[in-house]
Simulated scan of single mutants.
Amino acid sequence: MNFLRKLLGRDEWAITLPVLDGPLLPNQALEEAETFAELAGADNLVATEKGLVASSGNRLFRYEAAGQGEVIAEFDQPISAATAAKGMLAIGIDGDGVVIQGGQHGGRTFKDAGGRKFGCVTALTFLDANTLLMANGSDAVPASQWRRDLMQKGASGSLWKLDLKTGTATCIADGLAWPAGIATTGSNRIYVSESWRHRVLAIDLSSGAREPVLEHLPAYPARISPAYDAGYWLSFYSVRNQLVEFILREDTYRARMLAEVPEPFWMAPSLASGLSFREPMQGSQLKQMGVLKPYAVTRSYGLVANCDARMRPLASFHSRADGTAHGTVAACEVGDDLLVASRGGGRILRLPGVANGHREFQR
């Protein structure tokens, strides 16, 4: 049966893609958004009682309401995840686990458990004041090599529960294809975005049972953060590309590409594009009459979706192929505003009034 599916291009061997439609219908909301702050490699937005915290490389910044930022911490390796609760900051250090700063558990670190190293922390969220949930994206590569994990069809990610009192770590789920976001629901069930399988899972913390709640996404889901009205903000690395889907099924070609071509020029999703004439292109990505069409197939894209309490999309915010606000890897609410980290665009965007449910301009 697997041979027939491969021969006929069905199921996991199909290269057809879901379209951006319905609540995910493209618009220019991110491209037209205000710039809250310029920040190269903007990543990991966390709202705290002392202001917005954002990461850039190995530095952690705190921002005032006016967008003025200051460095509050610096590490030897890039910051790959962050979250906050009750005066505490939990920070994922790429290749070096998790460290807690401030609060009653300040100084606590988690670097490995059961012989497995936490070298690829992709998402963190507090379950309560003494429990931290952590996603380890891969056992094979650090978080900075997310493109390599995708192109190698990685599925060694895991979900962990960290006890901040005792320092113990418990594996909740294993064999995940790059878990990139975690959200709590107020119950024993949590949501986890599984990027390489283009879906969001509901996982039971007691049994580890998992159930897809949002499938067949046209993009690679990243972090999840709380939204107004018990909903969620789901951010994305980039949209899927039919040529990438084809290459993922061509093992020999893919192995040579990874071995012989510099990573910036792989035919793979990216956080930004158009930076070099050596980037791979398709006919639809070429400019026509000097113009790149907004609906062109693209390696990078900007997309944040607002979902309800069941993770059903309600509205979305885009930066299309001809835009620059791409690589929207994180989003969070600050008052009535939505702030979005455009890692590809090197800035933090602000969408005023979006976090109070006003989405009329999206139509």
Rank of each mutant, 00 (worst) to 15 (best):
R347I: 07
G283H: 10
H198C: 08
S207C: 08
R363D: 15
N306S: 11
S270P: 01
R223T: 12
A169W: 11
A42V: 03
G167F: 12
S193T: 15
F75N: 03
V297E: 14
T328P: 11
P352L: 03
R278P: 02
E31W: 08
L8N: 09
F277L: 12
V304D: 12
I15N: 13
A84T: 05
D308E: 04
T166R: 14
T324K: 13
N130C: 05
E32W: 05
L349I: 06
I348R: 04
V53L: 02
V213S: 08
E34D: 15
R62N: 14
D337V: 00
P78Q: 06
A325G: 02
A33K: 10
T324C: 09
V329Q: 09
T109L: 01
L150K: 00
L349H: 13
S158W: 00
V200R: 09
A180Y: 10
S225L: 04
V121C: 01
A222H: 15
F236I: 00
D94T: 04
G186S: 10
M134D: 08
Q242K: 13
V291K: 14
V354G: 02
C171A: 14
L159D: 07
Y253L: 15
N188T: 12
G69Y: 05
D11Q: 13
D308H: 09
A42L: 04
W146Y: 14
L8V: 11
M257L: 10
G327L: 00
H216I: 01
R350E: 07
V121G: 04
L52E: 09
G231R: 12
T83W: 00
A14M: 06
A177P: 08
T122S: 13
V261E: 05
E279V: 02
L164D: 03
V19H: 15
Y237A: 06
L338Y: 12
L30Q: 03
I79C: 02
E215R: 13
G103C: 05
I93M: 03
R148E: 14
T298Q: 09
R147T: 11
G344S: 07
Y295T: 11
L52P: 04
H358G: 03
L286R: 13
R320P: 10
L234S: 09
F236W: 10
L338E: 06
R310I: 00
A305D: 10
D337K: 07
V46L: 05
K293Y: 13
A143F: 14
A202R: 15
E32K: 15
A84G: 05
Q362M: 15
E64W: 09
A305R: 05
A341S: 08
G22P: 10
V71G: 03
H198Q: 12
T48C: 00
L60N: 06
P18M: 04
E260Q: 15
G181L: 01
A81V: 05
A84P: 04
Y301P: 06
G154A: 09
S342M: 07
A73E: 14
T324M: 05
P18V: 02
E38V: 03
I93L: 15
Q145T: 08
A40N: 12
R254L: 08
A202I: 07
R310S: 11
R299N: 09
Y295G: 00
S276H: 14
R210G: 10
Y232F: 05
L176P: 12
L271P: 06
D174N: 13
